[in-house]
Simulated scan of single mutants.
Amino acid sequence: MSLKKKLGLGVASAALGLSLIGGGTYAYFNSVATTNNAFTAGTLNLAASPTTIIDVKNIKPGDWMNRTFKLENNGTLDISKVYLYTNYTVSGPNLKGDDFGKHIIVHFLKNEDKSSILGPSNVIASKTLYELKNMSPDAVKNQSPSFLGIQGGEKSGLDAGTKDNMYVKFEFVDNGKDQNEFQGASLQLEWKFDAQQTAGENK
């Protein structure tokens, strides 16, 4: 066989080998497992009961008002914090520029479930509505005093399916001065409770 024929046969054999490697079929063992997975998010659902905490008429300087309400976690996720935001509007026929909110004081807003025998867990203590507009206290934090490092009452936060009992005392303060401009005045108070989730965790 001539050298030319040998070279041609070698090239043809190499091409056939490459075609078998690139596009040929081969046999193998195989085993497949399939999983079906899901991610379902939980819910934050905070409710205040009743939705109107106070609606009082014909108050005068020196009057005070005690009220109770509940914060309820109706969701499936635990709540770590509930921030309280205060806002109000004032109207009246005799207003001269003073802020009615400076004359309504919250003597206390306490969380009874977080309180201990050593003292109440006060969310708010002796603040006017005017002062509270610039604050955002946590309504479900255990702020009661501790003894030997032991905190009485429930831990901070609000677990799913639980509720906290809240007590509040308002007063229209008698400052001993002329407060006639507030005759017939009305203050519309909005308390917004903003629930926050707990930190992420390994599931």
Rank of each mutant, 00 (worst) to 15 (best):
1 M>F: 12
2 S>H: 11
6 K>P: 08
12 A>W: 01
13 S>C: 12
14 A>T: 13
16 L>Y: 05
19 S>T: 13
19 S>L: 15
21 I>W: 06
26 Y>R: 08
27 A>G: 12
28 Y>M: 11
28 Y>I: 13
30 N>I: 10
30 N>E: 15
30 N>L: 12
34 T>Y: 06
37 N>L: 13
38 A>D: 11
39 F>I: 14
40 T>P: 05
43 T>W: 07
46 L>D: 08
47 A>V: 10
49 S>K: 15
50 P>V: 02
51 T>L: 10
51 T>G: 15
53 I>P: 05
53 I>L: 11
54 I>Q: 06
56 V>Y: 09
57 K>Q: 14
64 W>T: 15
64 W>R: 15
67 R>S: 14
67 R>A: 14
69 F>Y: 12
71 L>Q: 02
75 G>W: 02
76 T>Q: 10
79 I>D: 10
81 K>E: 15
86 T>Q: 05
86 T>K: 00
86 T>I: 01
87 N>W: 09
88 Y>H: 02
91 S>C: 05
94 N>I: 06
95 L>E: 03
99 D>S: 01
99 D>Y: 02
100 F>C: 07
101 G>C: 01
105 I>N: 15
106 V>K: 00
106 V>T: 07
109 L>R: 04
111 N>K: 06
113 D>L: 10
114 K>F: 03
114 K>Y: 04
115 S>M: 01
115 S>V: 01
120 P>F: 14
122 N>I: 04
123 V>W: 01
123 V>L: 02
124 I>M: 06
125 A>I: 14
125 A>R: 13
126 S>G: 04
126 S>P: 00
132 L>G: 04
137 P>Y: 02
139 A>V: 08
139 A>I: 02
140 V>K: 01
140 V>D: 02
141 K>Y: 09
141 K>M: 11
144 S>Y: 05
147 F>W: 05
149 G>P: 11
149 G>M: 06
150 I>E: 05
150 I>M: 08
151 Q>C: 04
154 E>P: 00
157 G>E: 07
159 D>E: 13
159 D>T: 13
159 D>Y: 12
160 A>Q: 06
161 G>K: 10
162 T>V: 09
162 T>P: 04
163 K>P: 07
164 D>A: 09
166 M>Q: 04
166 M>L: 09
167 Y>I: 12
168 V>P: 03
170 F>E: 08
171 E>P: 02
174 D>R: 11
175 N>D: 08
177 K>D: 08
179 Q>I: 04
184 G>H: 09
191 W>P: 05
192 K>F: 04
195 A>M: 03
201 E>L: 07
203 K>T: 03
